[in-house]
Every structure is written in structure tokens, then in C-alpha cells.
Amino acid sequence: MSAAANVLVNASAPSNETGYRTFTLGSFKISRDEYFVHVTWPAKGQQMKHIMSADAFLRAMMRDVAWGFFYGWVNFDGMVGTRNKYGQVEFYAGRYAPAYHDRGLDLVETFDTPLIMATFKAILEDFTNKGFDPFAAPDETGSSWVGKKNGSNTEAIDRQRQACKRMPGLPGDAELRTDSNGYPVNRAFADVVQDAPEVHAEAGFENDVHAMNLFAYLSRSDVTWNPSVTSVCGRSLCCPTTEEYILPIKHGNDRVEWFVQLSDEIEWEVEDKLTGLPRAKAIMKAGDVAAMPANIRHQGFSKKRSMLLVWENATPELPEMYESGKLQPYPVNF
């Protein structure tokens, strides 16, 4: 066992064969080999088993950790994932795969957030090899995730999500991204204009008259599918992000979420939140706006790195309002 922030993470000694540890979280065991991550759990007197490609697993777990388990469900795939209960987190296998759930072959266990967070961080650290960045697009990070245990990439997995209090660049708020603070323009946004707005502040108003180049800021994002916060209006958060390849998780909403496509194109597959049955496809191009209802899960596909503004309402009562039926899962009737 290892202690992280006064939380005990249950991990085996490194395997003699692969060098990776096996982690125990409640009744679940999580292990990896050269190519795959294996999740096992007991059900109806037998040991159930799920397998995922290790790169897909690490990309999904990386988002779950970076987002603090996010709003609602983070499905690593159609079988395993987490549900944020805000203070506690459910980890499940098969719960939202009807063939398993209907036969009692699924398992859901609830953990205090610090325990599951510490366990996930320990798994990420152990399962991520040197040179592999779970936040990067495949074209940027290659195949160093393959094989036996080979070093680690702590710098990549310890990145902090950039969230402003009001707007980046204001005194005391999040920094703007520049070459000098480690944010060069991403290769896929080399053509994005880097000019700055003209800001003419009268004396005494230098801290109140403020603007930034949001597109330039996004062009310098060093991560994919990891929203930052760039403006705060009460509990309304604009959370733009840059997207390339596949959203590594299927996000199940516990509230209505909105997307504004700022550049390029993303194709979204929308499924029923509980069953995974297909409901719609949304192909969003620059300027498109669409709601993701509170009763769906969705996954995006972006063939070229694109800019997406995710718009969230952080009102804490929202999940209960949708769960209880006080709010319909759709934002408007017309």
C-alpha cells in the first residue's frame, strides 16, 4: 500500500513479468500488460473481466482525473466508468451495458472522492510509460504506451486544468498563454492569427478595461479534450477546449451542456445515457450551437484539431433538479 494525501492506495508490488502494479479499488482489480488494461469484478459467484487498449484507458482516466470526475458520468467505454456524486464517486462495470446489468453481472461501488482520486492518480503514474502523453493527440505522442513498464511521464499527467476566476490576463487571474511561459502555438493552429485586441484604458481603469485573443489562447493549448475556463458570469462558465482525434470518454450528462463550435468540425455520436442505444449524430461546423440534453451520453470525433466552446452551468443543485424531474432534460420547448 502507498499513502497519498493521507489516503491509502491499495497496490501490489510490481509484476516480475511486466513491471506494472495491480491496483485494488473496493471489489475491483485493475491491472495492465504490454497492450491492455484489465478490470475484474465479482458478480454472481464468478469473476467478470473487461479489457481495454491501454492507451484508450489512460486517455480516459487522464480526463477523469483532470476534470475532478466532471459533471455526471465519465464512461471510459461502454462498460467501465465513473459517476460523480460530488463528494463521492461511483466506479462501475457493466452498469450501463444492458446485457450485463439486466442479468446482474454488473457492479457499482461508491468511494469517497479522495480515495478514488488517489487510486486513479497512482494508476496513471504506474501505467503511463516515458514519452506517452495521455492528453496529446496520437500524432503527437506516438506508441510509447506499448510494452512493459518503461519509466513514467509525471510532468504530463500532473498538468493542472487552467481555470480563471473571471477572465485570463486580469491581475491575479489565470495567465495568458505565450511562448515564454511554455505554450507555443500548436502545429495544427499555425495559421491562427496571433494579434492582440487594442486596449486603450484611461488612467485608473487599467485593471477594468480588458480583452484577450481567445482564438490565439486556444491555439496554444497543449492538451486535447480538456476544457479550460476563460470567462465566468455567475455560475455560467465558458470552457473552451481544443479537440483532435476522439474524445477518450463518453460523457453522460447530469445537466444540459452546450457546445459552440468555434472552428473546424466535430462529429458527435449521441446515445441514450442508460442503455447506450444510438439517438442522434450532430455534425458541428464553425458557428454551430447545440445542446446536449441531460439524459444522453456523447462522444466527439475531430479529424483536424478544432476549437470547441463547452458552456456549462455550475449550479450545484442541477443534478438533483434533473434527477427528480423538476427540470426536463431539454433546455427549451418550441
Binding site: Q261, V270, I283, A290
Partner: peptide
């Protein structure tokens, strides 16, 4: 403007427009 392809839902639920 992008596309919305409905499989089993109501297109109005996605409130899809273009700025």
C-alpha cells in the same frame, strides 16, 4: 451550418442553430 441526423429522438431537443 452543420447537420443533425436523428436516429431515435426529437431534433428540437438539440436546439441546433448557427451563430
Amino acid at each position: 451550418k452543420g447537420e443533425l441526423k436523428i436516429i431515435n429522438d426529437d431534433p428540437k431537443h438539440y436546439v441546433f442553430s448557427n451563430i
